[in-house]
Nucleic acid binder design. Sequence first.
RNA 1: GGCCCCUUCGUCUAGUGGCCCAGGACGUCGGGUUCUCAGCUCGAAGACAGGGGUUCGACUCCCCUAGGGGCUACCA
Length: 458
Amino acid sequence: MRVRVRFAPSPTGYLHIGTARTALFNWLFARKEQGIFILRIEDTDLERSKREFEASIIDDLKWLGIDWDEFYRQSDRLNIYKEIAERLLLEGKAYECFCTKEELEKLRGKGYDRRCLKLSEAEKEILRRERKPAIRLYVPKEGETRFSDYLHGELCFQNNVIEDFVILKSDGTPTYNFSVVVDDIDMRITHIIRGEDHISNTPKQIHIYKALGIAPPIFIHIPMILGQDKAKLSKRHGATSIGEYRSMGYLSEAMVNFLALMGASYNDKQILSLEELINLFSLENLSKNPAIFDIKKLDFLSQEHIRRKSLESLTQLAIQFLKEKKLEYWTIDTIYLTRVLGILQTRIKTLKDIILMGDYFFTEDFSKDIEIPIEEKKRLSSILPELVDILNKVEDWNSTNLENRIRIFITERALDSRWFLQSLRIIISGKKVTPSLFETLEVLGKEKTVNRIKKGMN
RNA sequence: GGCCCCUUCGUCUAGUGGCCCAGGACGUCGGGUUCUCAGCUCGAAGACAGGGGUUCGACUCCCCUAGGGGCUACCA
């Protein structure tokens, strides 16, 4: 049987790290098994669902490189759920509930007491006139519900802890547990890979499968992603959406690699492309321990993936990123940008680092993280004019020539080379850290170099 | 509270009864290369939650305790 999996986000927010990882695992499994990957938007919560979020989730999935073979939106399928719920009602497997919010509130935590099950047909008829009923599934109080999970083995729940839960709300829309099962059956899903927080929903869903007379698929509940404090990763831990990391300049390759590494292993390999991940992915390599989000690892992976990019494609990524950051004037001279990236490539962790570490290539108004002390400035003022003359005479402006000339200059004047080179670095960049000074000067060009040194003399 | 899941270095993980006085990667710390950094390179510290069993032998199997997490809605 052909593998059919689905990723079913609800469009009530941006694509979350944990959700994205669930999508990725489903996708990797589908691609590895040459199966079908379905994207299903679970927008039955009319209050909280927004088209804007749906668009953003789709955008982020595309950015990650995740594509889908079939697409569904639950709001397009409302009549199906309604029809099936009504069938269950007719078959006596479900019943109408007329309870108000207030009545239910009093029952909180105790489980529904089936008061509406005892209603006579006449009573129901009267109630129907004043309000729409919800539909509850009849769940036996005796016995237990078992199902097996690929990662966790046999799981068993006592039926008396499962109340007669609502499957169709009074407004005619399905609840999550119901629409999921109806769709998973309808879409012939073979494997459900989802977060561990759904384990306790599963017995409820099993009861729906039973009521519908269908055998459930294989469940694979993957562990959650936690914050540093080991609580479920949430807003208070900082950035939690894929979009935020994208905007911080992380490469999608790095993000995918990072997500894949959390909760799974691939022959001890760390740096992996999408293709390699597909090849190495296996349900057997999934872990059942929750993973703590560690941005240090993401940084490392991002740096590695940047290093592996060709200069051309890195430039393209940078152009796109800089434009998004409203710095399009940095991208006008593509050749120059490429040369800058050539010396920055091994030093940046994210695309944003280009801005942080390379602003002096593009603007005279660059950030200064260090100033030269007054005392040293005086000393430099007496040395620099001569250097300017020398630099002005350099015909072939490349790092080798520059290094030769400047080193000769240092020797002749008996300068402390560390001190002098570092001073030059600060004068031309405002930074205490840059690529090799001579390469930096080469890329920066004669004009800017000389001007900045002149400026630095004052 | 009830039900359920999880427990190997700080972090992600390898390990499915002897190959493990526990391997890899990130991070950390030291050394080397060097104009600073990145890189490269050499090296170091660092874990089987605790307690009982089972077994000739437990990181691996069972039980208990502790800790962490999740669910407990006419949200998904």
